[in-house]
Amino acid sequence: MLKKYMKTASVIGLAFAGSLLFVAAAKKTITIKGSDTLVILAQRWAEKYMQSHPEVVIQVTGGGSGTGISALINGTTDFANASREMKKSEFNKLKQRFNTLGNEIKVAKDGITVYVSQSNPVKELSIAQIRAIYLGEVSNWKDLGGPDAPIVVYGRENSSGTYVYFRDNVLGGKDYMSSMQSLPGTAAVVNAIVKDKNGIGYGGAAYAEGIKIVNVKKDDSSPAYAPTLESIKNSQYPIARYLYMYSRAKPTGAMKEYIDWILSAEGQELVTKVGYFPVN
């Protein structure tokens, strides 16, 4: 009896495994992992691309730029999405493991948006003022032309590329003050600001809904700009960055076709739809 069951079970098992293999062999799978800033855009790209290329399966997951790059180094993803440049140490690790140099592709442009509560009268801030807020040198809205209320500072978790970019480009590489509340994901920051009338936070433009976007000026004498297509394209908006996709080596085959499509007019049109800015 037992033997008979085992035979049947093994036959079913083999058939199942075989069919899985068959499906896997027939379709090309591209895995993409990384930046939470890029994850929505990457999913849109994947959906659109799979519609016209049914033979390709694209799996997109988030987790943060660092997560994606770690996965690339560990060989568990084909592309890493990143909202910061890959570090030299990370390139070195990649070289050690795979003996490849890594390949960087700029896929979109993003303006880092600074948000405050809708009820906050502060309309514009200079980079120096934002830096002072995040370093803890200014702690009351009164000093920035707002009401007499303490500033509650929100930021991203240290696993995020935005965290690193903001530190290097707005804080001049100095560390955030220790009482900054770090939240997982831009959506969580936006949500916190919606509920906190004295809050300030930063993140990608794609998530900015139901809050006030602060205009940013480079220094006290220059005009303040909102993060718009125009101002980011002309590099007038002072905190704009590229978004990247990294692969271990120069992409070939299905991966190359996908990248080419992303950089084509059709792919870049989706960039604008999601709320980011095309690379060119």
Partner: peptide, 20 residues
């Protein structure tokens, strides 16, 4: 009434990102 970061939360938030 101030924020805290606990040991478990630090692992939860940072482990995914960290360079091996």
């Amino acid at each position: 009434f101030e924020s805290v970061r606990t040991m478990s939360a630090a692992i939860g938030a940072e482990m995914a990102e960290v360079v091996f």
